[in-house]
């Protein structure tokens, strides 16, 4: 609960996000082969990066919770998982909307897409697990274990997605997109804006978790 009164992150993201959108549409040039669809890419990639970051935060918070047993680490873990799932959902939606006009398919088993999808499943299962346990310490421990167990799966998920594809060859290589300097600048601004927004969001969710826990404490004290 440090420096609660200064909403620095929300204010900063209120400035940065519109600026980033403006850059995408007015500053960055339209890509030659993909045309206007490529404008999805800037935020798609930013969302994916911060989604992955949230899962990483959840894993670290999980380890710290298991070692220290403090409620605030559970709060960070809860925030990381939930925000990560929201962002991954958006990544999958925008990925689909990008893939349809470019590759003529809503879905393809590209390694990155596959990894995102599997992560989405793992961490949504984590959310379901949270809702299924009543005791607070038990819920926190189980969620922490699941967050760690989910994150150590990532290397295998990515590797298997690559091997899975290698026998069904596809010609999709999203990294073959040649980026001009102005595009890279736009991408950096988008990433930064999304990062600030993400940090604010995680912080908000973290505060909410602590408040809900406090509510639980108060109810218990009143109930006897």
């Amino acid at each position: 609960m440090t420096s609660r009164r200064v909403p620095l992150l929300p204010l900063l993201s209120a400035v940065l996000l519109p600026a980033a959108v403006a850059m995408v549409f007015f500053y960055a040039p339209t890509e030659r082969t993909m045309g206007v669809v490529q404008k999805i890419f800037y935020f798609h990639l930013s969302l994916a990066a911060v989604a992955f970051l949230s899962f990483f935060v959840a894993c670290v918070a999980g380890v710290l919770y298991l070692v220290r047993g403090k409620r605030r680490w559970d709060a960070w873990g809860a925030a990381g998982v939930e925000v990560g799932v929201v962002f991954t959902t958006l990544v999958l939606i925008t990925g689909s909307l990008w893939g349809r006009p470019i590759w003529n398919t809503w879905w393809t088993w590209d390694p990155r897409l596959t990894t995102s999808l599997i992560l989405w499943f793992i961490y949504t299962a984590c959310l379901i697990l949270r809702s299924a346990v009543e005791s607070e310490t038990r819920r926190a421990t189980y969620a922490a274990v699941m967050a760690v167990a989910g994150f150590v799966d990532v290397p295998i998920v990515f590797l298997s997605a690559r091997l899975f594809r290698s026998i069904h060859p596809t010609v999709i290589r999203s990294d073959s997109v040649g980026l001009e300097p102005s595009m890279i600048a736009t991408l950096v601004v988008c990433m930064a804006a999304m990062l600030v927004f993400w940090a604010g969001l995680v912080r908000l969710r973290y505060g909410l978790h602590l408040q809900e826990a406090e509510l639980g404490d108060l109810t218990r004290r009143l109930g006897g």
Binding site: L47, L90, T94, P101
Partner: peptide
């Protein structure tokens, strides 16, 4: 058209995030 997909994607991003933030604020 290609423009439709871009519009849809941006609607999904900002609509989704706005809904989530609004939900969080209400809960809080």
């Amino acid at each position: 058209t290609k423009q439709t997909f871009v519009v849809l994607a941006y609607m999904a991003i900002w609509g989704g995030l706005a809904l989530y933030v609004a939900g969080l604020a209400r809960r809080q």
